[in-house]
């Protein structure tokens, strides 16, 4: 019996001693933290999308309490999270307008061909930096899915070689916008559904050569759209998302077939 007893006592004793040390450490080395930080962190969606400008939800929670960050920065959380944050902090803020991302390019593989055979890293930024990108149009979606990979909620799908945002899944964090080397993705109000699906700054003939559904700068839509809600920016028609636009005429009359309702 003695060896068993000795063993049990030794191991048990060692265990007790270690446990005691851990307990002491937990007590004396504990980091003092405002319990509300943990509470806010629990309320935030936990997508860690970075849309608020902080490195994840925990950082934002800390910033709200310690650095006085505005409480309406969490786009994915919307009104619900804002309400909770207002309760905890006692601050008030207006709910930010519900916005969704849209990729302003409609030149999929059937409309805009490749101009060379790209061989390299399958990433839009890398492709863009190599020979200026392999798409015939130097402004269009390259289709290497960098935005789709960056999206924390899987709201961007690659369809026929270009990115499409599922607007009802989008949490408006803006991660995709930061990855697109061609700056094609815009955050637009959810209520606005008519878009010029082209971002080419080229002149009409060059656009036509590169893509079958590009904006050729004909300006027809700017005349049809109510209260100047589509304006020309150089050779490109651009929707002014601040204004209402709900005209089917602009869609039908666009010779480039690049104005669509999503």
């Amino acid at each position: 019996m003695t060896p068993i007893l000795t063993t049990a006592l030794t191991i048990g004793g060692a265990g007790l001693a270690c446990g005691g040390l851990l307990a002491l450490a937990a007590k004396f080395l504990a980091v003092k933290e405002d319990p509300r930080i943990e509470e806010i962190n629990g309320i935030l969606p936990g997508a860690n999308c970075g849309g608020c400008g902080y490195a994840g939800c925990a950082a934002y929670a800390e910033a709200v309490l310690l650095k006085g960050a505005p409480i309406n920065l969490c786009a994915p959380g919307g009104a619900e999270v804002l309400g909770h944050l207002a309760d905890i902090t006692g601050e008030t803020a207006k709910v930010a307008e519900h916005k969704v991302a849209v990729v302003l390019c409609g030149g999929d593989v059937s409309h805009a061909p490749r101009k060379f055979d790209y061989n390299g890293v399958a990433d839009c930024r890398a492709a863009h930096a190599t020979g200026g990108g392999d798409k015939s149009c130097s402004f269009g979606c390259l289709g290497y899915a960098s935005c789709s990979h960056a999206c924390p909620v899987g709201a961007i799908e690659m369809v026929n070689g270009i990115a499409k945002v599922h607007r009802d899944l989008c949490i408006s964090c803006g991660s995709c916008i930061r990855t697109c080397p061609r700056h094609l993705i815009k955050m637009v109000p959810y209520a606005r559904t008519i878009h010029v699906m082209c971002s080419s700054k080229d002149k009409g003939p060059a656009v036509k050569k590169a893509c079958k559904v590009g904006c050729i700068g004909c300006t027809i839509c700017t005349k049809l759209a109510e209260n100047e809600s589509i304006k020309m920016a150089g050779f490109l028609a651009v929707v002014d998302y601040e204004k209402d636009l709900d005209s089917d005429a602009v869609i039908e009359k666009c010779p480039g077939k690049c104005i669509v309702r999503i």
């Binding site: 490749r114 101009k115 060379f116 055979d117 790209y118 061989n119 930096a129 190599t130 020979g131």
Partner: peptide, 8 residues
Amino acid sequence: SELAIVSS
């Protein structure tokens, strides 16, 4: 006829 290869 064939596209040139472009790589880094």
